[in-house]
């Protein structure tokens, strides 16, 4: 791996990453909060259930990622799902059953699922 030795190199690297991310934009992105408390509340169980459900249903257009605290401790485990071309939606209280439901209903059919957490914040984008 070559190092980033200048500001220009950093910018080039960023462009390359952004391009890669853009190429994925037609896929579903499932982001599972995996901070200590999310894991304690069953975040990994939710992740594994969704991965399993994706495999069982033979879905190929789903990417998974892990992230840190989504700040909604009261609703752990929390999962954010971004359908192609749509705004990300955060679901709370995702136990195993809800996790599978999210894949079969929301991801596969775009059907609304209960437990949506409204966005109550504005986020600084650098």
């Amino acid at each position: 791996m070559s190092t980033i030795a200048s500001l220009d190199a950093l910018r080039a690297k960023r462009e390359e990453i952004l391009a890669r991310q853009k190429a994925r934009a037609n896929k579903v992105l499932i982001n599972v909060s995996l901070a200590t408390c999310s894991i304690a509340a069953g975040g990994k169980v939710a992740l594994e259930a969704m991965q399993d459900e994706v495999a069982v249903n033979g879905l190929t257009n789903v990417d998974f990622m892990q992230s840190g605290c989504m700040t909604f401790c009261f609703a752990e485990p929390t999962v954010e799902i971004t359908l192609p071309g749509k705004e990300p939606v955060v679901f709370g209280g995702v136990d195993e059953a809800k996790a599978r439901e999210l894949v079969t209903e929301y991801v596969m059919n775009g059907e609304p699922v209960e437990g949506i957490i409204p966005v109550t914040y504005q986020r600084v984008i650098l």
Binding site: T36, C37, A41, C73
Partner: peptide, 19 residues
């Protein structure tokens, strides 16, 4: 504090967390 205040009171037995 283990920082899992949403699950209070929290008990850990080994690695296993009870909320």
């Amino acid at each position: 504090c283990v920082g899992g205040c949403a699950l209070a009171p929290i008990v850990m037995v080994g690695d296993k967390v009870y909320g």
